[in-house]
């Protein structure tokens, strides 16, 4: 019985089709653009085949280097989430339930403090970081760990709330397991989905980050894409498409992770 709460079939199809087509257009335009021989006019496969040609490694060395940088940044950022954020969240959940609001508040601050504001204060902080650790790109991950905080927190907290962490750890403690054992063999396997989701969304955010890298003059995927686009917009667009595809796969698998939890 339709009591008026849900849209009719036609309404649904019309809305989804119109919005879907409008949102597909820019992506399709990107795809079409990568086959153009010039800025306008005929089509060619050259821009795609050029990527696998012999001298591609040399021509696009800067870009490949920047992609490498971004992957290192993604890995270090995930490391920060797993080594610093995750244990703190478990500790607060088990030992300091009253601090939970405080932790949540801290973790959502980066939404209120935009990257372009944070970077104003990060510039002096990084002049110290460079003195201590050198100017290598990976140090940017300290800033990125802050940027991903709201997303990573939400993903892990959802999992913490769904699993009875307290009973699990008490049971293991009663059976005389040490805290490291509890963490590694009992809690982590149960929090696998939340941690994976946090890692995936962190990777997606880091691969798309432009603001901080660009103002602090570091090379990552996005700053390199903008630079390459001045001389070779086709290749820049190809890599943008590939990065988008990767992000889509990552976030699609987060959706899968969530669904598995509900069915199992």
């Amino acid at each position: 019985m339709n009591v008026g709460a849900e849209p009719g079939r036609i309404t649904r199809v019309v809305i989804l089709a119109v919005v879907g087509i409008i949102f597909a257009l820019p992506i399709l335009a990107m795809v079409e653009f990568t086959f153009r021989s010039g800025l306008s006019g005929g089509h060619t496969l050259d821009h795609w085949t050029g990527l696998v040609s012999e001298d591609a490694a040399r021509t696009y060395r800067g870009l490949f280097q920047a992609i490498g940088n971004s992957f290192i940044l993604a890995i270090v950022t995930v490391g920060i989430v797993v080594v610093i954020l995750l244990p703190t969240m478990i500790l607060v959940h088990l030992q300091f339930p009253r601090l939970r609001r405080v932790l949540e508040f801290i973790c959502i601050i980066p939404i209120t403090v935009p990257a372009i504001v944070l970077v104003v204060g990060l510039a002096p902080v990084y002049s110290v970081v460079v003195k201590l650790l050198g100017g290598a790109t990976w140090t940017l991950a300290f800033a990125y760990g802050i940027t991903v905080l709201p997303y990573a927190y939400r993903a892990i907290q959802a999992n913490l709330d769904a699993v009875d962490v307290r009973t699990l750890s008490e049971a293991a403690r009663t059976l005389s397991a040490g805290w490291m054992r509890v963490l590694w063999f009992v809690l982590l396997p149960n929090l696998r989905r939340g941690v994976l989701a946090a890692a995936f969304i962190s990777v997606a955010v880091v691969l798309g980050e432009f603001t901080i890298a660009s103002i602090l003059n570091r090379r990552n995927l996005q700053t390199a894409l903008l630079q390459v686009s001045q001389s070779d917009p086709w290749v820049a667009t190809i890599f943008a498409l590939l990065a988008l595809l990767l992000a889509f796969v990552l976030l699609l698998s987060i959706g899968r992770l969530g669904r598995d939890r509900r069915t199992s």
Binding site: A204, G208, Q222, A247
Partner: peptide, 23 residues
């Protein structure tokens, strides 16, 4: 649509600019 939304909500930046310049 859920996954596409979470990707596109994150899609701001250089790549989005490319997409609209291409369009």
């Amino acid at each position: 649509i859920d996954s596409a939304s979470s990707v596109l909500a994150q899609f701001g930046g250089v790549m989005l600019a490319f997409a609209f310049i291409a369009l």
